[in-house]
Amino acid sequence: MIGELLTPVLWLGAFGLLFGGGLAFASKVFAVEVDPKVPLLKDALPGANCGGCGYPGCDAFAVALAAGEAPANGCPVGGAAVAEKVAEILGAKAETGERMVARVICNGTFENAVERAKYYGVMDCREANIASGGSKGCQYGCMGLGTCEMVCPFDAIHVNESGVAVVDSEKCTACNKCIVACPKNVIKLVPASKGVHVDCNSVDKGKDVKANCKVGCIGCQICVKACPEKTIGFENNLAFINYEGCTECQICVQKCPTKAISGQLEKLREASSEN
């Protein structure tokens, strides 16, 4: 009786011991050295797997970091805090880049932009864009159907009640998802610290811009001439700010005849009252 019970126990125990020992031996013989930094780096990364760094997920980015192929500040989601941690693990100094956020460079609200048709299709910008470029007169602006809102993994971009998408710069991690999804390419990355932006994406001639939108850049280049730092450029009928030189003096904001440059005019008033 007890023998019948013991036989299978002993046999299976022997099997298990044999295989276990074999595997233990094999794990020594076939040991593969994994970079000990990789698991540490994985822990330091946010784990959102958004792909903003250009690698397929945080794991792949960690491997690339350990191999020295990716920059320590390559994770746009983690920002400076993660870059510092990563740099510490890698034993290098963090090159903390300027924090970037996405910005919808269009102010073509229902009030400002001219509608040339009504759109009754699928409520998706990419669909609307196929249908002869959307309902607005301007072919370069935000259509406000919320594709960016749909693809944003961080709930950081929303179409407001006036029909234009606006980025919540606190929540935005510059992961690029909305920028890729937007069929009008009207979302750009801008430095989070800067407050003056040209909010127009239209490369039409001034007359056409004027006909389609109240707040479009008409290409008058007054801002280019007025800028004391000479940091505003002009290309394809559209002014753009070189953020590196911008001191946020607000002069361009004040001078722009169509109010296509947004900024903080109250700062200018404060400055002038101090003088």
Binding site: T7, P8, W11, F15, G16, F19, G20, A26, F30, A31
Partner: peptide, 26 residues
Amino acid sequence: LEYLQTIAFILVIAALVQLVEMIIQK
């Protein structure tokens, strides 16, 4: 020991897969 067939096979297959994984990785 034919009655131990199922459980023995499970053991063998599990150990085999582990071993194969190690060898391939190396």
